[in-house]
């Protein structure tokens, strides 16, 4: 095999691995715990409890009575814990995954409390939609609401 053939082969193998890894992440953007929609989800906020009880931050408040919110001090020097869950029988968003909606709201609330605003992702320069990059595009589009939280 020539060096360039070897290079092409190994690039193809790495490429296939890349697609597979992105697909794994895309698949994992929802996890087993997502099935339990009313499960409590929690973020730790590096602010004293008083600042957090002062008011429910907008991203959570926007979900209204459908979510139940609970706050208490985190152990040690870690600030406060901000908990939220969809109430039993609440009107769930029907166009989006409720677990993702709640995760985004919790992460956004944490950032509002810690920083004062939510960091905007960079605007994409150029990109093409292809079958090969579909798993990665899916992983990116759901990445704010995905994860273990």
């Amino acid at each position: 095999m020539s060096t360039s053939q070897k290079k092409i082969l190994s690039a193809a193998a790495v490429g296939a691995a890349a697609v597979a890894a992105a697909r794994t992440v895309a698949d994992r953007t929802s996890n087993a715990a997502d099935e339990d929609v009313t499960r409590w989800r929690v973020v730790t906020v590096n602010r004293p409890l008083d600042d957090v009880v002062a008011g429910t931050p907008a991203p959570l408040a926007d979900l209204g009575d459908a979510v139940e919110v609970r706050v208490h001090a985190a152990p040690g020097d870690k600030g406060s814990e901000l908990w939220a869950r969809w109430r039993d029988g609440a009107d769930l968003p029907d166009d989006q995954d409720p677990a993702q909606v709640l995760r985004r709201a919790l992460r956004g609330s944490k950032q509002l409390l810690e920083v004062g605003w939510v960091l905007e992702p960079g605007r994409h320069t150029t990109t093409e939609d292809t079958v090969l990059n579909a798993p990665l595009r899916k992983a990116i589009s759901t990445a704010r609401g995905a994860g273990l939280l």
Binding site: T24, V25, R28, T29, N31, N46, R103, R107, K110, Q111, E114, V115, L119, E120, P121, G122, A139, I140, T142, A143, R144, G145, A146, G147, L148, L149
Partner: peptide
Amino acid sequence: DNGNTNPGITEAL
């Protein structure tokens, strides 16, 4: 905690 705008990807990984 507030530097990565795609937290779900690495949380899964």
